[in-house]
Write a protein that binds this DNA or RNA. Structure first.
Lengths: 158, 158
DNA sequence: CTATATTAGTTTCATATGCAACCATCTAAG
DNA sequence: CTTAGATGGTTGCATATGAAACTAATATAG
């Protein structure tokens, strides 16, 4: 048998690893706060940004399908975790921002998720963590994935 | 704003990267061969192994849900890409192996997927690729994910 | 100014997937 | 041997997601 097999195939390993890590984190946001991944991504995008932003912006940042984002926005509005303000210059678009309750939830949840992350990364040395961050960055920019919310403004500006 | 944000959060980055890489590969197996991910995983598990193996084994190797594997097995049987032989010692279980057509498809598809993989990894130096493999390995074993089919035999043996 | 194309966001529909119940068989305990 | 529990595999059901059609509004071309 070849020494190359499914277990050394990076796409497979990434997929499986990502699923496993997601499952480990979902306890925090799903079980404790009743959020699913798209909802959490919206809160996170808004939580790290001071200015309100459009659904489109969230779509571009997170590379999540726009219908998925649309449904998650509706759910978060119903739970009053975000506010939707009609945009002044474009009457199709809305500006989204965290409500007070949303901000509270986010500030509470984020440290717990960071904790889980470092738990998962605790099997790596500091050096390896730095290497990982660098490698992910290279892969991301090679695949043209956004790597910072600022960079995303060019998407927004269009 | 904190310098820690969604874009530096490893679970998010892994998820997004895995989705992107999968999408890049799906052209090869979906468009060209009409396979979905679970089906491809079954073919790959069987393709790298000489002995036939059970559905359970594939579930454990790939960490894919057993109902998903069951349905994919049915689809592959219908397409006559795999064969199912009743197990001699356990009449509930079946041994699965590639059919001649399945072997042909796999031998044709695998090099193309390897090519895609190296295309994606081409933005990394040789050293970085080695680092990535090591880091993935550490994360996998820390999360108790199988890292070789041989290792999986302990699951099978139980 | 008007017609056409594009964009923000929503909704409908088809499909994919996980969970849980289920059947058949095997194993273990009494 | 008999019964209770575990295991391999399948299936029904609920839900999540992407593609594409759609609405309303904006931008562009003539």
């Amino acid at each position: 048998m070849s020494e190359f097999n499914l277990f050394s195939f990076v796409p497979f390993r990434l997929n499986r690893l990502a699923a496993e890590v997601s499952a480990a984190l979902s306890d925090e946001y799903r079980t404790s706060y009743g959020l699913d991944i798209p909802e959490w991504r919206i809160l996170a995008t808004l939580g790290f940004r001071d200015e309100p932003c459009s659904a489109q912006f969230i779509v571009a940042c997170t590379r999540t399908h726009k219908s998925t984002i649309s449904r998650a926005v509706t759910a978060l509005l119903e739970r009053k975790l975000i506010d939707r303000i009609e945009s002044s210059d474009d009457r199709r678009a809305f500006e989204l921002k965290l409500s007070a309750a949303g901000r509270k939830l986010f500030d509470e949840l984020w440290p717990r998720l960071l904790g889980k992350e470092s738990e998962i990364l605790s099997c790596l040395s500091q050096q390896e963590r730095t290497q990982l961050a660098g490698i992910l960055g290279k892969l991301e920019s090679s695949l043209d994935l956004p790597t910072s919310p600022y960079e995303q403004d060019r998407f927004n500006a269009r």
